[in-house]
Design a protein around this nucleic acid. Sequence first.
DNA 1: GTCGCTGCAAAGTATTTGCATAGCC
DNA 2: GGCTATGCAAATACTTTGCAGCGAC
Lengths: 158, 158
Amino acid sequence: MATITTTNEARDEQDLRRTLRRRGQRVTSQRLVIHRALVELGRHVTAEEVFGAVSQRLPGISRPTVYATLDLFDELGIVRRISPGEGPILYDPRVGDHSHLVCRRCGAVEDLDVTTDATRALAAARRRGFEPHHAGLAINGLCARCAKADNPEPSALP
Amino acid sequence: MATITTTNEARDEQDLRRTLRRRGQRVTSQRLVIHRALVELGRHVTAEEVFGAVSQRLPGISRPTVYATLDLFDELGIVRRISPGEGPILYDPRVGDHSHLVCRRCGAVEDLDVTTDATRALAAARRRGFEPHHAGLAINGLCARCAKADNPEPSALP
DNA sequence: GTCGCTGCAAAGTATTTGCATAGCC
DNA sequence: GGCTATGCAAATACTTTGCAGCGAC
């Protein structure tokens, strides 16, 4: 998994300000606060969770702004958008190389610190005129908890 | 990309019947007709498209049945569920090894006949108690059409 | 005969729209 | 000052739920 666009991860507010300016985007208090919330939460979050966390600091903020900002951050390489296919879209503040385990039962998404070489796939994509932004390996199946519920221990009687 | 569960692709109706019976599932006319529609369409389809195609043959069929059947087929390895993160979930009748190009602008999903070795990731997942079903590489970015709209030819004036 | 699948109708959730205003550059 | 981002309020789109009856095995 590699982020293709050459954007540095915005580690702090200064990086974010620079990144926004470089891309001709405005620096607004909403964007700064949403960024801070993402860093502090430090895990996969839904847009609604971000909205809740940010509303405490910026009571007037609106849902459309949160959605638009999260999408912008995804384009800037500051977060990674994950769609589990079950439940709401998640935003991952970890943009470095890693894979995802997606439970098809409960929708949980875990990080997996294993990388895959997507070089050939990226080259093939570009040959087609596709402009890649990010390549990611996702493994779906049953998480440990849901797998256990499916194959119960013999000692456990209903 | 590898389908982990040892299910044969149901090439025809007989294969589907066997697959369903083997898994203790009932063979119903709805499931047979949905399967036939998937094979005939032969491309990424939405649940709504399947519903439309199937309604012509089985006028009384309901949306919940289509959704439930498509989910079942995904579990059986007959289709692959794709969530582009933009727009509705897609179902891919091609279950063999391939990757996906997802356009972040228009949501289009293209197949890419390039495979990735997910062995290490799958092993790591199992070590965690995760039961993998399928591993897939997805590349998001801009499709050729949307990329062109973003970087217009110098000769084209607005 | 029994259990699972289906149909019905609707609800619920997540996300996006259109337009006027505010605020960054 | 110009143009973009935001807020507002709602609408839209997609998917799932609960329950009763039919049908596969």
